[in-house]
Design a protein around this nucleic acid. Structure first.
Lengths: 156, 156
DNA sequence: ATCATATATATCGTGTACGATTAAATCGTA
DNA sequence: TACGATTTAATCGTACACGATATATATGAT
């Protein structure tokens, strides 16, 4: 069990501090994206799905879930909302009819250009140096790997 | 399961990487807490509310929302669920009847002991050194301040 | 004292999120 | 080939989370 000196006035144990940190940061990130994305008619999770599809079109629901760590119970309704906005379409895989492939429509492809200013706006809002970006990426990656290992040993 | 895989060839800009990182880490943290907390009959957001109340009893809904960055539309039903479990009660402030104070019941107070193993379990799962804890706390704090400043200037 | 304004919480509608279950398609192996 | 086991999405019920709105209380200027 790890013990750390606390910043002045902060009465939580470090592990709680960090879980509050991550909870609050996640929230703050969503707040910065929200006004940018609402102009495009997207929510933040919908935007993440679109990013993954812009990287590679025609992925299955399962592949999207793997990338984003989301279950079909979350993705299926989310994708149907994207479909009803005309950004994607859904098609059963010909070779394996269990799989549903998500295809970008012309409007979905075009949206990438309309959204091209978003990453720059967000990067600016982040206010971190390149070194701090790298440091944070490394730390969060390490944390996630440790948490994943815990989850797996728990499941075993 | 708990990790978002970004395989080789998955090319994201750093700011996008970081937003994926935070999204995924937030999710992974929740996954580690979930099995520990379900034995106590709590969800992760409910646990955060209880932590804040264990620090200081009889806070108003607004104070809890300030601490956790949550609106009354989220907190009111959450607190009512805690109330229906007998962990807290709700009482209008005598001096200002607009305010609702949330009071720990004896069961709510006792739950702190039952939950005392949780922070240690999670800290272990985090798998970070003391220095890394401090580094992450510092970086996340800096990021949050920058994001909050951005949100404020946006609102102005 | 009265009324406009501000504050604190609650309510409503939409959209994630997840575990458990279901249903259909595929695969392995006898 | 046949059939049980596995895989893949979809569905269901519960619980956040937020913006917009409603309601009740409090405050302040006249």
């Amino acid at each position: 069990m790890v013990d750390v000196k606390l910043p002045d006035g902060f009465r939580l144990r470090p592990e709680s501090m960090l879980c509050f940190d991550i909870y609050a940061t996640h929230h703050a990130v969503g707040q910065v994206y929200q006004p940018l994305l609402s102009k495009l008619g997207l929510t933040y999770p919908q935007y993440l799905v679109m990013i993954v599809l812009w990287e590679q079109d025609r992925q299955t629901v399962g592949q999207l879930g793997e990338r984003l760590d989301l279950a079909s119970s979350t993705l299926t309704p989310l994708i149907k909302r994207l479909e009803s906005q005309g950004l994607v379409s859904r098609k059963r895989d010909a070779a394996d009819e269990r799989k549903v492939r998500v295809l970008l429509t012309p409007a979905g492809i075009a949206l990438e250009q309309e959204a091209s200013h978003v990453p720059g706006c967000v990067a600016e809002a982040f206010g971190l140096s390149v070194e701090q970006f790298a440091q944070m990426h490394s730390l969060l990656g390490q944390l996630r790997r440790a948490l994943k290992a815990q989850g797996d040993s728990e499941a075993a």
